[in-house]
Amino acid sequence: MKNHPHKPRLCILTTVSISIKSFCLDQIRALQQAGFDVTVICAPDPELPKQLPEGVDYRAVEFSRVISPFKDIKAVVSLLRIFRRKQFDIVQYSTPKASLLAAIAARLARIPHRLYLLWGLYYMGVQGMGRVVLKVFEKIICRLSTEILPISMDMVDFAKSQGLVGKTKCSVILNGSACGVDLSFYNPDRWAASRDEVRKQWGISADAIVIGTVARLTGDKGINELVGAFDNLSQRYPNLVLLLVGTQEQKDRLGDQTMQTIQSHPRIKTTGWQTNPAPFYAAMDIFCLPTYREGFGEVNLEAQAMGLPVVSTDVIGPRESVEQGRTGFLVSPQSQDALLEPLTVLIESPECRRKMGQEGRKRVENMFERNKLIQAMLNHRLSLLSSSVR
């Protein structure tokens, strides 16, 4: 860095601001402390500048989340102007639409380091012609990028098997994850009082066994299967409660039977989206994310950091965020029946819940602590500058 001709300039792009708020703020602070001039680009959000660290240059660009040729060309032109004006050393992008348009504009602007943070493959949840088109987009992003940084080890192998990654360098930072876990924040001792507070607020008794999830309430998060499994188990365990922390979306809506069960079952509690899920983790005894597809499963890590055993699915991401038999259980996706056995084991054994929760916390401390991941990310970005100077 000492030999770099100017203060290094780095740009972070995502389609919408929630990705910046959820995954990037601590990374931005670390980059600034290391001497980087940081710019953030995403769809307009008047609240985002208030949350960004002082000195960050925020640029709003309209990104359409669907294919819209006119709007997409307009966005590429806007990005190209910004890139040429700012002359970034590094541009990093994540989320599908922002990545496609940023990769095109960054290549046209001859940005030397174009990093694709591969957090997931959206086309895997799409069928028909839409899947073909979205896979082509992924190939374009990968071809235009100088380096691919998948979120998990499995994602590296899968991207190669899908023909997305050829000669382009492809590697995982540290042990994976989008941002690691802030262990001082996700600390069960810090939120111990919230257990009773949340339960009281949502009408959950102190002696209830609470299965919970923190996710979008959509089909591909396995909510249909989770609700079905709970409905079955609740008939055997009268003190069992399901806590759903999240909201429905217009796409991939829950099935009619699932919605009817959620609305009619007296022991299913839906809280809506929560900006701070930590108090809700504190109110749970078992965490369950029966997702169909996932980049990594950050909520699995958060839940383990909060001392919870986790039941998730044996798919890319969760199989790295959960250690089978030690910190939780991994089951086949899209199967209500597959959830029944591990949930039953955890419901009936407080000792199993306690031991797996302890092991989960230890594993997150050893492998996914946020400061360690940020330092590894920072070392990677600095190494890119060193290679440019040479």
Rank of each mutant, 00 (worst) to 15 (best):
A103F: 00
L115Y: 03
D256V: 14
N232A: 11
Q250K: 14
C42R: 02
W202R: 14
V227T: 03
K86Y: 07
R84V: 07
I223Q: 06
G35I: 10
V91T: 13
K139I: 00
L384D: 06
V245H: 05
F368R: 01
L385A: 06
A102M: 05
N232R: 14
L378K: 00
R85V: 02
G55Q: 12
L226H: 02
V156Y: 08
V165D: 00
P279V: 10
S349I: 13
L308G: 03
V77P: 01
H265N: 14
D196F: 14
N276W: 06
G219Q: 13
Q263C: 06
P53M: 11
V311A: 03
I20Q: 00
R319I: 03
D337F: 10
E197C: 15
T291C: 07
I347R: 12
M306T: 08
L308C: 08
P150F: 02
N371W: 04
R381Q: 12
R195D: 01
A178I: 01
P112R: 02
E62T: 11
S387N: 13
R363P: 00
T14Q: 03
P342A: 11
S349N: 15
M155V: 10
Q263G: 07
Y123T: 02
F230N: 01
T39Y: 09
I173R: 02
P309T: 06
L115S: 03
R110S: 10
P350R: 06
K86C: 04
T261W: 09
P333Y: 13
F36E: 02
E138C: 10
L217D: 02
L101I: 07
T327Q: 05
D72W: 08
N300M: 03
S234T: 09
T258V: 04
R326S: 14
R195L: 07
K372R: 15
P277L: 03
V56M: 03
R110V: 04
L233H: 12
A215C: 08
I104P: 01
L373V: 12
D252C: 08
D231G: 04
T168H: 12
F368Y: 15
R326G: 04
F83Q: 00
D45W: 08
V311T: 11
L149Q: 10
R370M: 14
N366D: 13
R65C: 09
P266Y: 03
S19I: 12
A60M: 02
Q162E: 15
G255S: 15
I12N: 01
R195A: 03
E323P: 00
G255H: 14
F70Q: 05
V345R: 15
I316P: 00
A60W: 04
K139V: 00
R293V: 06
G328P: 05
P318V: 01
Y281K: 05
C42V: 11
